[in-house]
Amino acid sequence: MSYKMIEIDGDNAEDFSDYIDIDMQEQLDREFFRGIGAVDDSDSPVGAMVFELLDSESDEDTKSRIRLLKADSEDIENVILTEYKSKIEEEDVTESCFESSDKTMSDFLESNGFSMKVSEAMDIVLTVKDVKAVPLFAKERNFPPYIMSLSEVSAIQFRTFVKECLFKGHKGLLEDLAYISKSWFDQDLSSCIVTDGKVNGALLIKKAPSGLLFTMLFAAFGADSQQNLALLMGYSARKAIEDYPEDTKVVIRRHNVMVQKLAGKLFAGSKGEDVFMGKRSEE
């Protein structure tokens, strides 16, 4: 049987809903996310892959992180992986990697040259109840007037903050920070510090279509930056506690040392699930 490869993007991602969950479908609108879909002779979806390009706009080696690979059979997965290889060659990708709890996917990738290990995931999944249990966030408190929701700052102020972040190399989890608009983030849950008319600190949170809350960027600059980070956390945490049910899930990705230490202090005992991590050189 022959399969046709097509590009998946935000417009046709829903067609592959059996393979790509609703949260990942939304990601395909983003600048560095790529989707490969396999369809059969009757144009019915039979498999899909989603990957994200990393460091593609710098002179560093471009990497690719495979976010999802799912198909009806191993044959189809092989075809998709071949298409993936040609796509990443066009992008000068030097290394592929992945992190997933999907054993089927990881076994398949391991059989295709990926080195494998089992490790604790960088993500920890908490609930609003866990956030409320932190003594720092448990009590109601008054916040100073210069901390506010993202909805209260203008698009220009937000853009200036993004430029500041990019200039300093702070992107959080957002490779495509330069391309993301203010409206992409949750306007009430995300918080900002405004000093001298400019945003100089923010905790940007994304509410995914499934209802999961993702902390995407957490940065503050200039005067009182350390205190401002604490204020931002407190403000967003209180908003989550007040506005969301206790079972709402919050995902924190411990992508650098600062976040690891902070998560360790606030949510001691919280661990990521065991996941399969692998990589393969593409040179």
Binding site: E57, S58, D59, E60, R159, V162, K163, L166, F167, K168, G169, K171, D176, A178, Y179
Partner: peptide, 16 residues
């Protein structure tokens, strides 16, 4: 001069 190597960051500044 910028600490960052990201061309999209520089482009954003330049566009503005």
């Amino acid at each position: 001069l910028a600490a960052v190597k990201d061309r999209s960051a520089l482009k954003m500044l330049g566009d503005d």
